[in-house]
Design a binder for these strands. Structure first.
Lengths: 139, 139
DNA sequence: ATGCAAATGCAAATCATTTGCATCTAAAAA
DNA sequence: TTTTTAGATGCAAATGATTTGCATTTGCAT
């Protein structure tokens, strides 16, 4: 389960880390540091916002989380690193976000490696469009 | 040419705008506001950093520029919106950045539209890896 | 040439994120 | 189990990117 990951990565098991892992595990969308902080406050527990930032930084270095996109283009948002690979599609009007469970870039990456001699480690893809609800609306 | 774009978009022709357009036109990599500001200072001309930000915001709204990626994950960087479509590959070690001139996303886009009922307007793809020079180096 | 809306410079404000430092705590050592 | 200590946390202040208020200037339509 989720808690074991701290042991596996050689990290101390602290209240903050367990809370943040739990929040991320339950989330189905990327969350910003601020959002994680607020969600933890909602559960009567309380940890400091800098602790959230510091914890996320540790998790990032240990590959426990990743930042698939910048919310509103300016806030890092985090998801747990699961084995699945997916991307997000965001509505330009209402900002609704949905997960896209497949990705056509595996093939592409090989081509790029041959072309550039880089070793490709990862990619970030963000999709933007208009959701069904907002289509037809003026603005 | 480049200058006409202001007329076409119904924007006043000012020194700042022309300078910024010129810098972006000559650039072969995305530039941050700060970088544009510095490059303009180097050419003996001088405009204010807030003007750079305000100008880029106007250009963004008029689709004259786009932000293909966040430099170092935290600074918006801008390129001119040309008709070509491309992406960038960044070395995780030395941060060298190269342009990738093709993108297999067109077919994928249709599938996503059918799957989600969204209308896809654009996508951002960032590639990360290790460049030939840095391969084999320890850190 | 004139007038005005829009653009600019400058300084201060804002917002996300980071950091210094004193204190606390998980987990290794005794 | 108690002791020890490196690492984690809280709090407040600092930082860095970006935005904004306001007085002044400038492009361009009349």
């Amino acid at each position: 389960m989720m808690e074991d990951i701290l042991l596996k990565k050689g990290l101390k098991q602290t209240k903050s880390r367990l809370l943040i892992l739990d929040i991320l595990d339950k989330a189905d969308k990327p969350l910003t540091a601020e959002e994680i902080y607020r969600l933890i406050q909602n559960e009567e527990d309380s940890i400091n916002l800098s602790t959230v930032y510091r914890t996320l930084e540790v998790f990032l270095n240990k590959n426990i989380v990743q930042i698939p996109l910048m919310k509103d283009g300016n806030k890092a948002s985090y998801i747990l690193n699961r084995d699945e690979h997916h991307h997000y599609l965001v509505c330009d009007k209402c900002h609704k976000m949905i997960k896209i469970d497949f990705c056509p870039f595996a093939e592409f990456e090989k081509q790029i490696e041959q072309l550039t001699s880089f070793t490709i480690l990862k990619h970030k893809l963000e999709l933007f469009g208009i959701c069904p609800n907002c289509q037809g609306k003026t603005k």
